[in-house]
Simulated scan of single mutants.
Amino acid sequence: MWPSSSAPYLTTTKPLDERGVVLAVWTGFWHSADVLAGNAAEQRARLSGGLVISPSAQPTVTSLATASRSRCQRALNVTTVYVQWHPDHLFISNPGSFPHGITLENLLTHEPKPRNPRLYQAAKRLGLVEQTGRGIDKIYADQIRLGRPAPSYERSDSDAVRIVLRGGKANLGFAKLVAEQDEEGTPLKVEDLIILNHLEYERRIDVAAAAGLVQRPQSEARACVERLLERGLLEAKGERKGRVYHLSAWVYRVLGQPESYVRVHGIARQRQEALVVEFLKAHDRAERKHIVDLCGINGPQAGRLLKGMVEAGILKRLGSPPRWTYYILAKK
């Protein structure tokens, strides 16, 4: 484990004038910078236009933004902000719960609600924060655009807001994809990044799951994934409620994982039929559940596959539908 930092900044309880507030914020910011400095391990990737990206091995930009925000919020108090740097992640604990009305379920979409307006005005004068207060968006975007897992606030409770920022080796393929979208003048929004990041790890997503991730209504989440579909970043399978999305073949090539596309896209229908035939040659009979496991598809998809093979004269269905149905090879 890397060293931890935990120190209160100002132990006075006397009211501060504007100059004092600015000084306290500036002190908190530079202490955060000192804590997070010194991590120089880099990777490099050259983009098509000659632009070189060099993400550090730890989420430095995001870490500094998050830590300085926590330090600024506590700069006038005697409570302690903990910053722990582990080999694979950064952990920051900021005493006190989320502001009233903000929860884990609306963290990304709730209107800005700074705990202390005077601190934010001071930090704004120093150029450390945005006037809009959309720091959460920047924390998510800076972390995800390098292909790392999204920030996690799941350890937060009524006593403290806690965030985990995963570090380690960046995904240069993902960073290149995001940077090239920026260069083309079509930057990805934070909700786009969240969905693409999820699909990098989980392979598939539907509209309901997307809505939960980006903390927006399903209508907005559907518009988001369909926009990514139109841009060639996603592909879709199924219709209506059964419609799911996955990364496109082009994206998997950029990520350097062309074989992953084959796995997520699914085995071709002809290959599925061949697997079923081989299974029946070895085991004489098969139920739908066997085909689900064999081909890596869901129950309705297995049902349609078997029905098609029966209609084509390849299989014969026996038993009492729907519960006791099984299939054998049709005699030629």
Rank of each mutant, 00 (worst) to 15 (best):
P95G: 04
L199N: 00
R145C: 11
R204G: 15
R166W: 07
E111S: 05
I163N: 11
C72N: 08
L165H: 04
V83G: 03
H86V: 13
L119N: 08
H100Q: 15
D88A: 15
S156W: 06
L172W: 14
S152E: 12
K169E: 13
A123P: 03
I139W: 00
Q73G: 02
A175P: 05
Q73L: 11
E184N: 07
R204C: 09
V207Q: 03
E183F: 02
G133L: 00
R145Q: 15
A122L: 14
G185T: 00
G173T: 15
N171Y: 02
Q73D: 05
L104H: 05
A123H: 07
Y82S: 07
Y82P: 05
S70A: 07
L107F: 02
R115W: 00
L188P: 06
F91G: 01
T109S: 10
V207E: 09
L128G: 11
Y120C: 12
K138E: 00
L76W: 01
E180P: 10
I139M: 01
Y82N: 10
G127L: 12
V83F: 05
D192F: 13
H89P: 12
L119G: 05
K189C: 12
P117Y: 04
P149M: 01
A175I: 03
E183V: 03
Q131Y: 02
G173M: 14
A150C: 03
L90V: 09
L146A: 14
L188G: 00
H86A: 14
T66G: 11
Q143H: 11
R148F: 05
N77R: 03
L199C: 04
E200I: 11
F174E: 07
P99F: 07
P187D: 14
E111F: 03
D192R: 11
T186K: 07
L119T: 05
S68M: 04
E105F: 04
L108E: 00
Q143A: 13
Y82W: 09
A75H: 02
N77P: 08
Q73R: 06
E180D: 13
G168N: 07
P112S: 00
E130S: 00
L177F: 09
V178D: 05
S68R: 06
Q181T: 11
E202K: 13
K138I: 07
R166I: 11
A179T: 11
P114T: 07
R204F: 15
D206N: 13
V129Y: 01
D182V: 12
L172H: 13
L172Q: 14
Q143E: 13
H110V: 00
T103D: 10
S68P: 03
R204V: 06
P99R: 07
H110N: 04
R71P: 12
A67K: 09
S68C: 09
L177D: 12
Q84I: 04
H86M: 12
T80M: 01
R71W: 03
F98H: 15
T103M: 12
A67V: 08
G96A: 10
D88H: 09
A170G: 05
H198S: 04
Y153N: 02
S158M: 12
D88L: 15
Y82L: 15
P99D: 14
A141P: 13
E184V: 08
N106L: 01
P151T: 02
T109Q: 13
T80W: 02
E154F: 12
A75C: 01
A75G: 03
A150G: 01
P114H: 09
L188S: 08
L126S: 09
I144E: 04
L119M: 08
Q143M: 09
A150Y: 01
L177E: 03
D206E: 11
E154W: 03
Q131T: 06
